[in-house]
């Protein structure tokens, strides 16, 4: 649990954000049927509060909501009318928490406790995206991580080394790029920064998970609509979950909206589905965020 310790600091106060997330697919041929799942509902968690949420689907479909294993709110629907375009618009209003100020972290010994290891085992493993052997042949970084006095300091090192290695560049990677590929190409977007950081943290024995959500990129300004981002960052376990944004190297708090958490991107995709028929292309994603 990320519990802010000094909630009195008003300059770090929370925001009320109105988020409109629009995405979908365009199909080359008419599609008769498709089955889809959307993970775009902000969670009410750790001081964040969801005030309202609607999902519009074209062609219209009835929605079955459920909570998945990782705690995300999923909206499932199937479309059975012939269509060439599937559009999904998720509209949410959410209060974000104040920026948390972290208390002292735990120790390496606490992380090595068998009970913790077992409880967090899913966040310590390699996945198709996250690669625990990422630093093979880079003993310097590994040693540096290990030499830190505490897991918290090691986490800062991880962020620093990932940011040294990767430069932010859109279009260089895609949704299927693994941490290993991003590390080798030295470029990527938030998803790649996140998978890479997860790899470095887990390799050092620090449980870490993928967070999918939104980032309000502006300074607080009521009423102005800005084009935001579908964003991803990291939470690591250090006597509690603590969030880090390796892409922006900034504190995670009032500008971040948490939607879903998992081992990697595959556990939290905002839209996934299958359909019957030819080729499809993504419609792209637009996220508009307005501070209320």
């Amino acid at each position: 649990m990320t519990v802010p310790l000094h909630p009195s600091d008003s300059s770090l106060g929370g925001r009320r954000l109105h988020i409109q997330h629009r995405t979908g697919y365009r199909y080359a041929d008419v599609v008769d049927a498709s089955f889809n799942e959307v993970r775009m509902t902000p969670l009410s968690t750790d001081g964040q509060l969801l005030l309202s949420h609607t999902l519009d689907i074209q062609p219209s479909a009835s929605i079955q909501p459920y909570t998945d294993y990782w705690g995300a709110l999923v909206e499932a629907f199937d479309v059975h009318v012939p269509h060439r375009l599937l559009e999904v618009v998720s509209i949410s209003t959410v209060d974000t928490p104040r920026l948390p100020v972290w208390g002292p972290g735990g120790t390496w010994e606490e992380l090595a406790d068998p009970v913790t290891l077992d409880a967090q085992s899913e966040f310590l493993m390699s996945t198709p995206y996250v690669d625990l052997d990422l630093l093979d042949g880079r003993a310097a970084i590994r040693d540096e991580m290990r030499d830190q006095a505490s897991p918290g300091e090691a986490a800062s090192v991880a962020i620093a080394r990932v940011r040294e290695r990767l430069s932010y560049e859109t279009g260089a990677t895609d949704v299927s790029t693994t941490a290993h590929q991003a590390w080798e190409s030295q470029r990527g977007v938030c998803q790649d920064f996140t998978h890479t950081t997860l790899s470095v943290l887990r390799a050092a024995g620090i449980p870490a998970r993928y967070v999918s959500g939104y980032l309000h990129t502006e300074e607080p300004a009521v009423g102005r609509t800005v084009v935001g981002e579908s964003h991803a960052w990291v939470e690591y376990w250090d006597a509690g979950w603590r969030a880090l944004d390796p892409t922006n190297d900034r504190a995670v708090g009032s500008a971040h909206v948490t939607v879903a958490r998992g081992r990697d991107y595959a556990d939290v995709p905002p839209l996934k589905g299958i359909y019957a028929g030819g080729q499809s292309e993504g419609l792209g994603v637009t996220v508009e965020i307005t501070q209320l």
């Binding site: 009970v115 290891l117 077992d118 409880a119 085992s121 899913e122 493993m125």
Partner: peptide
């Protein structure tokens, strides 16, 4: 802790 979580999740 009756059955290790890691045994189940793997």
């Amino acid at each position: 802790g009756l059955v290790p979580r890691s045994l189940v999740t793997t």
